[in-house]
């Protein structure tokens, strides 16, 4: 993995400045994404679960959980396992070391 050169850093800086001028700031959305993704990953640590189950465990809306699972499937960190009634179950493919610790279960 290459380190960033001065030229890279300058280009990145200009890119950020230019975007700021245009009023765009994806930082907030990215932070929210990371927070949600972590919540889904830790909910999955308790074992395979359906979307509604993961929604309850993570406190996220079900559709968001499903969207995160789609991304995790695409990039290889989750997979579909069994099916529970009308809902497929998902499992993490991350090793315990890679996944965030499970959050305390929602009441």
């Amino acid at each position: 993995m290459a380190a960033l050169t001065e030229a890279h850093k300058a280009a990145l800086k200009r890119f950020r400045e230019l975007r700021k001028q245009k009023g765009g700031d994806p930082g907030k959305a990215a932070a929210q994404f990371r927070q949600e993704r972590k919540a889904v990953e830790s909910a999955l640590k308790r074992g395979p679960a359906t979307v509604p189950e993961l929604a309850r465990a993570s406190g996220l809306p079900a559709h968001k959980v499903l969207w995160h699972l789609a991304g995790m499937r695409k990039y290889g960190t989750a997979q579909e396992t069994a099916q529970d009634g009308d809902y497929p179950k998902y499992a993490s493919t991350l090793s315990p070391a890679e996944a965030p610790a499970p959050a305390p279960a929602q009441p």
């Binding site: 359906t50 979307v51 079900a62 579909e80 009308d86 809902y87 497929p88």
Partner: peptide, 16 residues
Amino acid sequence: GPYGRVLRPSDGKVPG
């Protein structure tokens, strides 16, 4: 496809 199968977007249910 995004889910690898047909599910409804609101909650991942297999639509009946």
